[in-house]
Amino acid sequence: MSALFWRTFGGLGPACYFRHFFFGLMFPVLMYFGNKDNLYPPGWQAYAYSVVSTLLYPYSRFVYEAVAGFVFGRNVFFVNGGVLLFAKFVTMLACWVFAVFVAPVGLLYLYVRTDAD
């Protein structure tokens, strides 16, 4: 079981994981401050989903970057900085919201790739 865990979750690399994890923390913080003074705060399910999504976000982002790299290749796009930041925020939000569904694909790939090494 330990080998399965490390081959799957350890395949991303600590620097990459913590970088994406740091940016993934932005959404639960926004959720907390957005609902802090709410008369009807979200239930424990929303907070549990937030924790799971934050932990799986780096793997979801890994899948997104792999797909985007395949689609766009090594092309460079020149766009307005505001547009770029908005697009990055939207893709980060989508990766965080759907991390529960997308991250297993990345975990499976990391398991297979690490197994082959």
Rank of each mutant, 00 (worst) to 15 (best):
Ala116Val: 09
Phe21Gly: 08
Val100Ala: 11
Tyr109Arg: 05
Phe98Arg: 00
Ala68Met: 07
Lys36Asp: 05
Val52Glu: 03
Val102Gly: 05
Ser60His: 03
Ala46Leu: 10
Asn38Tyr: 09
Arg74Lys: 12
Thr54Trp: 14
Tyr49Gln: 12
Thr8His: 02
Phe77Asp: 02
Ser2Asn: 12
Ala46Val: 15
Leu12His: 07
Trp6Glu: 12
Gly106His: 03
Tyr111Val: 04
Tyr17Phe: 15
Gln45Cys: 06
Ala94Val: 14
Val97Gln: 01
Phe5Tyr: 12
Val90Arg: 00
Val63Cys: 10
Trp44Asn: 09
Pro41Phe: 07
Ala99Ile: 05
Leu55Phe: 13
Phe78Trp: 11
Tyr109Ser: 12
Phe98Asp: 00
Leu12Thr: 06
Phe77Thr: 10
Ala48Trp: 07
Arg113Lys: 06
Lys88Ile: 15
Val79Arg: 03
Tyr49Ala: 15
Leu25Met: 12
Leu93Asn: 05
Ser50His: 05
Arg74Tyr: 13
Phe62Ile: 08
Pro104Asn: 01
Ala87Lys: 04
Phe5Pro: 00
Gly10Ala: 11
Leu30Cys: 13
His20Val: 04
Arg113Ala: 15
Phe62Ala: 15
Tyr59Thr: 07
Phe98Thr: 11
Asn38Asp: 14
Ser60Met: 04
Val102Phe: 07
Arg74Ile: 10
Tyr40Leu: 11
Val67Asp: 05
Ala116Pro: 00
Gly69Ile: 08
Asn38Phe: 11
Tyr64Leu: 13
Thr114Asn: 14
Val52Cys: 12
Val51Lys: 01
Phe27Gln: 04
Pro28Gly: 07
Ser2Ile: 14
Phe22Tyr: 13
Tyr59Ala: 11
Tyr17Val: 08
Lys36Gly: 06
Phe22Asp: 00
Phe27Ala: 11
Phe78Gly: 10
Val67His: 05
Thr54Val: 10
Val105Ala: 14
Phe21Arg: 00
Leu25Val: 10
Thr8Leu: 05
Phe23Cys: 00
Gly10His: 01
Leu107Pro: 02
Leu107His: 05
Gly11Ala: 07
Arg7Val: 09
Phe89Pro: 00
Val97Arg: 00
Lys88Gly: 03
Trp96Leu: 04
Phe5Asp: 01
Trp96Phe: 14
Leu39Val: 14
Ala3Leu: 09
Leu56Tyr: 09
Leu30Tyr: 07
Val63Met: 09
Tyr59Ser: 11
Val63Gly: 09
Leu4Asn: 02
Leu12Phe: 08
Val79Gly: 07
Gly13Phe: 02
Gly69Met: 04
Gly11Lys: 01
Glu65Gly: 06
Tyr32Ser: 06
Cys95Glu: 03
Phe72Cys: 11
Gly106Pro: 03
Phe70Met: 08
Ala3Glu: 10
Arg7Pro: 00
Leu4Val: 15
Gly43Arg: 00
Ser2Gln: 06
Ala87Met: 03
Gly10Trp: 07
Tyr111Glu: 06
Leu25Tyr: 04
Val76Asp: 02
Gly73Glu: 05
Gly11His: 06
Ala3Ile: 12
Gly34Met: 02
Asp117Tyr: 07
Tyr57Met: 05
Phe101Leu: 13
Met26Ser: 13
Gly10Cys: 09
Gly43Val: 10
Gly11Val: 08
Tyr57Pro: 03
Asn38Gln: 10
Phe5Gln: 04
Arg7Ala: 11
Val51Phe: 15
Pro41Met: 05
Val97Trp: 04
Trp6Pro: 00
